[in-house]
Amino acid sequence: MTTEKPLNVLFLCTHNSARSVIAEAILNRLGAGRFKAYSAGSQPSGRVHPYARELLEKLNYDTSSLRSKSWEEFTGPDAPDLDFVFTVCDNAANEVCPVWPGQPISAHWGLPDPGVAEGNESERRFAFADTHRMLYQRISIFTNLPLASLDKLSLQKRLDEIGRAAVAAPEDA
């Protein structure tokens, strides 16, 4: 896999309102110049969850281009050529995905939906912060993979391992 041009990465989740949007923001920061991240959903909610947007803004991410959108935007002739597609929710992983032009490498990195977290406001906001933490760890590992020296099979194995790995909480790390 060559890394001469930025590699395009699509994060998928059913509603494209929290997990996939958070992942898009993280990768666009961590992978600046090497990766271009996008997010989409099979049944987009039409809005970024307010807690997700507030968290990203608090952490100084650029949120100006974040929006909830359909994965159909990435299947047409004007869509970017995708190098990677990651599902970050179990629903999207079990859905029949479109055929992505160019056959990008895909993996499942499922996480609990912070949008359905219960409890008081503080507990619900913590669910979003915890989602950010887990995605940040996974994406950090991904951006540090030696992509140019891995064959497609080895890379697929590494991406699957990232998705299966338990993500340590700060006190466990």
Rank of each mutant, 00 (worst) to 15 (best):
G33H: 14
A52Q: 00
R53S: 04
W71P: 00
G31K: 03
W71N: 00
Q43K: 09
N60I: 11
S70L: 06
S70M: 07
A37N: 07
A52G: 02
H49Y: 08
R29T: 03
F35M: 11
R34N: 13
P44M: 00
G31E: 03
D78Q: 12
L66H: 10
R34Y: 13
L59F: 10
S68M: 10
V48K: 02
R53G: 00
S42H: 04
L30S: 03
F35V: 09
G46V: 08
F74R: 00
T63I: 06
A37P: 03
E54W: 02
Y61A: 09
K36M: 15
R67W: 09
R47Y: 14
D62L: 08
E72P: 00
E72T: 12
G33I: 15
D78G: 13
S70A: 12
A32I: 07
S68D: 06
K58H: 09
K58V: 07
E57D: 14
V48R: 02
D78R: 15
A40M: 02
L59N: 14
L56S: 06
S70G: 11
S64M: 10
L59E: 14
G46L: 05
S39F: 10
P44I: 01
L59M: 13
G41Y: 02
L56F: 07
R34M: 13
L55C: 03
